[in-house]
């Protein structure tokens, strides 16, 4: 299962203890009940909604239960490119976040080991953005880079940007927002694996004629794969369903719509509940397939 990738120490354990006592069942019951109630029920409701048909002579937003699988076909036709854009943006943002986060994580987890205070301060700085609402931070970026902001005025005055340049409403702005918002999710899991990285392996690699760059690609990077896989999943999954950054109210514009925005407008604006539900189900299914392939390919199962 894909979620095994989050457990960084996914080491094969001996066969589970055979003792199946009633105590275990009792202890498990609240969790199972919770899952059934708050995960399974909405999922089933969503699937049922996605197959609904418009009520005959009904009002707008009035639907009846049916098995209208054509909903999916029409959604694919209408929002196919939105899907591609979503995954494209999410992918670029994930790669960008990885490139930014890895050096940060390496600095905190390996270089700063000698100075626990530096380590603690750096970690707090990584987590600090969480103290302010996600929406407010994204809005702040919109203000900083809006067309009449002094930032943009200055950049234009210095001819770094052309006179008609925009930031907000461009794909670049959306990807920038996604990257920025998910950097902590990328940094923390990578930090936890690098923090446990045994530097004696690096010494051994140097002793065996590997240059520092070779040591990084042959030893450090493979040994930090569990963190990279967790970090990329924690970034890619929410980023591909994100609807804040791409929204016109924040960093996006009409041309940067992502699946999240399509779902939001279908649910809340044009009241096409079946279409919105079909989009959600498809998003979930596609992500599940991508993640399964990714985890399988990255071969992190047998890493300690």
């Amino acid at each position: 299962m894909a979620f095994a990738a989050f457990a960084s120490s996914a080491q094969a354990v001996d066969a589970a203890p055979r003792k199946s006592s009633k105590v275990a069942l009792v202890l498990l019951a609240p969790g199972l009940a919770y899952l059934a109630l708050f995960f399974l029920t909405p999922l089933i409701a969503l699937i049922l909604t996605s197959l609904q048909a418009p009520a005959l002579y009904g009002d707008m937003g009035e639907f009846v239960y049916a098995f209208r699988w054509e909903n999916y076909v029409s959604v694919v036709n209408e929002y196919g490119d939105t899907f591609l854009r979503s995954f494209g943006y999410a992918l670029i943002a994930t790669v960008a976040a990885l490139l930014v986060s890895y050096p940060i994580a390496y600095f905190i987890g390996v270089w700063a080991r000698k100075w626990p205070v530096v380590q603690a301060v750096a970690l707090i700085l990584v987590i600090a953005p969480f103290f302010i609402s996600f929406l407010l931070r994204t809005l702040a970026w919109k203000q900083i880079f809006s067309d009449d902001s002094w930032t943009m005025e200055t950049l234009k005055a210095l001819s770094i940007l052309g006179p008609d340049a925009h930031f907000t409403g461009t794909p670049f702005a959306v990807i920038f927002g996604l990257t920025y918002n998910f950097i902590p999710f990328m940094t923390l899991p990578i930090y936890t694996t690098l923090e446990r990285l045994d530097t004696r392996y690096l010494e051994a690699s140097g002793d065996l004629y590997a240059r520092p760059s070779t040591t990084f690609f042959k030893v450090t990077l493979p040994l930090s794969m569990p963190g990279i896989v967790s970090g990329t999943l924690l970034t890619f999954i929410p980023a591909s369903g994100d609807y804040i950054n791409a929204s016109g109210d924040f960093l996006g514009g009409p041309g940067t719509q992502m699946v999240g925005n399509a779902i939001q407008s279908n649910f809340l604006v044009i009241l096409q509940y079946p279409a919105a539900a079909a989009l959600s189900i498809m998003l979930m299914a596609v992500i599940l397939v991508i993640v399964a392939i990714y985890v399988k390919r990255s071969g992190t199962e047998d890493l300690i």
């Binding site: 004696r200 051994a204 690699s205 065996l208 042959k218 030893v219 493979p222 040994l223 890493l303 300690i304």
Partner: peptide, 27 residues
């Protein structure tokens, strides 16, 4: 270290855990 004609058998062995025995030896 990588420029010296010297190899070490470490106290902790420091065998790369992500490589097979053969890959370790051929490294």
């Amino acid at each position: 270290p990588y420029q010296r004609p010297v190899n070490t058998v470490f106290q902790s062995y420091a065998l790369f855990p992500h490589m097979t025995v053969l890959e370790n030896v051929a490294f």
